[in-house]
């Protein structure tokens, strides 16, 4: 695990650091603390991370600037903030968890568990997906998204208007954030359930999901029963 803590309150940062080391133990490869926004942005750009713990109020700066960048990256973001009223907005942007201050070790561990066990959020609060495009961050509304295809460490987002965008997060991480609106119907596909028009059984027991726009997406043999039940 490579973890970054972005927090401008020194005492709290030390607390998070201490607890993180404690929880992860030997599995922790690196842990970095940064107390200001520009430096944090630089660090995120140049390092490979697995998890970012983010405070939304940094020296009076609006933490959402950093948040949009963070959620467009391949790693998961957990927000640790004093302002509980920012929780809903944070979830809409696609954070894995929101830990309100003051927190204890258990609450922090619970958040970390989500990251480690790939537990699905099941909260259905996400509204936007942030993608990097020509050096800028673009926000794509979830309602414009049809399905997602895994492409190695990246994913391809297929939108209603026929466009295709790339996302840095893996299919597993997106599944965690987008469930249960989206279902993993195949090891390479994550599909919005409400878009499936019918489930077709082709010759050679090939299962296909036909979307409302006519596109057909394969359903994994092992997943067929489960998906059909959910779809019905």
């Amino acid at each position: 695990m490579n973890i970054l803590i972005v927090e401008d309150e020194s005492r709290i940062a030390k607390r998070i650091e201490r607890m993180t080391r404690d929880i992860f133990g030997d599995t922790l490869q690196s842990l970095k603390h940064i107390d200001n926004l520009p430096e944090a942005l630089r660090f995120i750009e140049n390092s490979s991370l697995d998890l970012v713990l983010l405070d939304l109020n940094l020296n009076g700066d609006n933490g959402f600037d950093l948040l949009t960048t963070a959620v467009s990256e391949s790693f998961h973001t957990i927000v640790i903030s004093a302002n509980k009223d920012q929780a809903i907005a944070a979830f809409e942007y696609g954070v894995l968890d929101f830990v309100p201050k003051p927190f204890n070790r258990d609450r922090l561990e619970q958040a970390f568990n989500r990251a480690i066990t790939k537990e699905k959020t099941e909260n259905n609060k996400i509204k936007l997906l942030a993608i990097k495009k020509r050096g800028r961050i673009q926000l794509i509304p979830i309602e414009d998204l049809l399905y997602i295809k895994g492409a190695g460490v990246y994913t391809e987002l297929f939108l209603i208007d026929g466009k295709k965008e790339l996302h840095d997060k893996s299919l597993e991480k997106l599944e965690q954030l987008l469930s249960p609106t989206f279902e993993r119907i195949h090891k390479s596909y994550l599909v919005k359930m409400s878009e499936i028009q019918q489930i077709i059984v082709e010759t050679g027991s090939k299962y296909m999901a036909e979307l409302k726009n006519g596109e057909r997406i394969p359903i994994g043999r092992t997943k067929y029963k489960d998906i059909k039940a959910k779809w019905l």
């Binding site: 309150e9 005492r11 607390r15 004093a82 009223d85 201050k101």
Partner: peptide
């Protein structure tokens, strides 16, 4: 206001 109070309380717990 939460920014003051919650941060203070978190630090306080830690102390």
């Amino acid at each position: 206001q939460p920014h003051f109070l919650m941060n203070t309380l978190t630090s306080l717990i830690d102390w």
